[in-house]
Amino acid sequence: MTESRPFPRAGVLDRAGVRDDGLTVGRVADVLGITVRTLHHWDEIALARPSLRSDAGYRLYTTRDIERLQRIVLYRELGLGLAAIRTLLDDPAAAAPAELRRQQERIRERIARLEQLDAGLGRMIAAHERGVLLTPEQQVAVFGRDWDPAWAEGARARWGTTAQWAQYAERSAERGAEEWQAVAEAMTGFEQELAAAFDDGVAPADAAADRLVERHRAVFSAYFPLTRSMQVCVARTYAEDPGFAAHYDGIRPGMAAWFRALVDASARAHGMDPDTAIWE
């Protein structure tokens, strides 16, 4: 393969000092910015063969040989394959402009793809740094008037080095206001289910309670995958963290501790001691 240096300009032949007795492989490789191995390969496949041999049997390239090599290097820099290059060089009927236009279109398509990747990387970086890629006004509109946009920054400061934050950021990078609205509505719907179950007196270890616990894991996984052990830790936070407890107890007094009891009972039913649960 050619090295990533500019293809030779027209004046390179003059500077190379090609004489009638030709240049060696090493000298030509240096002049054109390619490897000796590449020249040997092109010789083996009869794409560009040296016209001369020294008395000792070494390959020697003439001025015309190097001119052909220059064209090969140029076409390679433009992205053409060796088969297409051979056709352009050796087939008098080959339509060089048509082939070059096709290659130009392929390059433009690659540029467009790279621009998309660049934009995606920009969003990914911003998501890792900010969490939610919405303006403060959009966040309040989506998550409600009680939402504080500073919470995302606090979450990054606390969990920004964890695998879960990386997963959260990767999903956030793909979400706009509509996608976040769907996530928020799913969580609101789940909290309404919790309130109804609380009012109905659903007890830990009930079948209905276990369904709620599984529903919580599914809804929460919109942020990042939640294992059963991690869910126990989340429910513990709901009950013990003043902010979370105020939110859930604001829906129904005592609901935060009640939901934690549901999650703990479900964990035991699945063979896990909730007292030993850890964040995985």
Rank of each mutant, 00 (worst) to 15 (best):
residue 171 R to V: 09
residue 226 L to N: 04
residue 232 V to H: 12
residue 168 Y to H: 14
residue 150 A to W: 07
residue 98 A to K: 09
residue 208 A to Q: 08
residue 240 E to K: 11
residue 172 S to E: 02
residue 153 E to F: 01
residue 146 D to E: 12
residue 156 R to F: 01
residue 160 G to H: 08
residue 183 V to H: 15
residue 58 Y to K: 05
residue 233 C to Q: 15
residue 222 A to S: 13
residue 23 L to S: 02
residue 181 Q to H: 01
residue 164 Q to F: 11
residue 193 E to M: 14
residue 144 G to V: 07
residue 20 D to E: 15
residue 33 G to L: 12
residue 231 Q to A: 05
residue 18 V to L: 02
residue 187 M to I: 02
residue 55 D to K: 12
residue 214 E to S: 07
residue 70 Q to F: 10
residue 170 E to D: 01
residue 239 A to V: 03
residue 158 R to F: 01
residue 240 E to L: 15
residue 9 R to F: 06
residue 122 G to M: 10
residue 196 A to T: 15
residue 127 A to P: 05
residue 113 R to Q: 15
residue 277 A to E: 05
residue 269 A to Q: 13
residue 6 P to R: 03
residue 133 L to N: 06
residue 184 A to Q: 10
residue 268 R to C: 11
residue 101 R to P: 01
residue 188 T to I: 12
residue 126 A to S: 13
residue 270 H to T: 02
residue 86 R to F: 00
residue 39 L to A: 10
residue 252 R to H: 07
residue 110 R to P: 00
residue 262 L to H: 13
residue 88 L to T: 05
residue 181 Q to E: 14
residue 62 T to N: 09
residue 85 I to K: 06
residue 120 G to R: 14
residue 217 R to S: 08
residue 118 D to Q: 15
residue 263 V to N: 11
residue 215 R to G: 15
residue 123 R to T: 05
residue 163 A to E: 14
residue 79 G to E: 09
residue 119 A to S: 11
residue 171 R to D: 07
residue 137 E to S: 08
residue 12 V to F: 11
residue 213 V to G: 10
residue 156 R to D: 13
residue 23 L to G: 06
residue 80 L to E: 05
residue 179 E to T: 08
residue 259 F to Q: 10
residue 145 R to E: 15
residue 177 A to K: 01
residue 244 F to W: 13
residue 29 A to N: 02
residue 278 I to R: 13
residue 168 Y to D: 07
residue 245 A to F: 06
residue 28 V to I: 06
residue 129 E to C: 01
residue 256 A to I: 02
residue 211 R to M: 12
